[in-house]
């Protein structure tokens, strides 16, 4: 018993300075660990030693997805311009085709400079609108219903069947369906442009996104006027 008591006393010695050292060491370790974690997060976007926007960034995502989206507008407009008999449709189609193809060239040019493929390699679209990934802090997620892995279909994007249908039509039926598909296409692409305009840190990307929003809003008006004049109803969103 006596021995046990002595041992108890020895196990709880006065350790004032020892405790202080322990506290300081632990605090230092904690700070280092947190610093290392922050370092991992902060370093990532520029990990390739260049300042190019990387995979998963708003810039790369916007350039890839918007060029796919735009290129379909070019396909629709190419076909309409080649096959319509209506001068107003032909003029609109020429405007859409030439403007959007030029903008696709800008976006694909950026992708070439950034060493990124033309299309998202995952085969999924709009993942870049799901909010910040590695270079953001958890909890600061942006208000978005986008699943982090992206989606198979972009709003406004026509299906292969719809394209085939357009190609099978002629005369007024062709004009009407072209207007319907193009209106839905313009309106469907707007949220992508809006997101890039709001969230990209690269001025050229922001400027193009803002310009797409403004010019397509004007074109939506024209489309609606042409549709009203022809008694054509808008298609529901897709």
């Amino acid at each position: 018993m006596q021995i046990t008591e002595d041992e108890t006393e020895e196990l709880a010695p006065p350790v004032g300075p020892g405790t202080r050292v322990l506290v300081m060491t632990a605090a230092a370790v904690a700070i280092l660990l947190l610093g290392a974690a922050v370092g991992l997060l902060v370093r990532l976007p520029g990990a390739d030693t260049t300042n190019n926007p990387g995979t998963g960034s708003v810039e790369v995502g916007f350039a890839q997805d918007m060029s796919v989206h735009h290129l379909q507008a070019v396909t629709l407009a190419n076909w309409a311009r080649e096959h319509t008999a209506d001068p107003a449709i032909r003029q609109l189609a020429f405007d859409i085709q030439s403007t959007q193809l030029e903008q696709v060239g800008r976006m694909k040019g950026w992708l070439m400079l950034w060493g990124q493929p033309e299309q998202p390699p995952t085969g999924k679209y709009m993942a870049w609108m799901a909010g910040p990934d590695s270079h953001g802090m958890a909890g600061m997620t942006m208000a978005s219903a986008m699943p982090s892995g992206g989606v198979d279909h972009m709003p406004g994007y026509a299906s292969a069947e719809e394209i085939s249908k357009l190609q099978s039509l002629s005369g007024a039926a062709l004009d009407s369906y072209f207007l319907q598909l193009m209106l839905r296409h313009h309106e469907g692409g707007a949220p992508m442009a809006q997101f890039a305009a709001d969230h990209s840190g690269v001025p050229a990307v922001r400027v193009l996104a803002q310009n797409i929003l403004a010019s397509q809003a004007a074109e939506v008006k024209t489309l609606k006027e042409l549709m009203t004049a022809r008694g054509v109803e808008a298609l529901p969103g897709n």
């Binding site: 006065p14 322990l22 605090a27 904690a30």
Partner: peptide
Amino acid sequence: AALVAGKGKPWGTIIAVVVLVVLAAGVF
């Protein structure tokens, strides 16, 4: 001496530090 040591031992600090280190390790 034992009493003084017991009284002076900053249990609160030690627990806080341990929790902090565990949290930091978790975050990392």
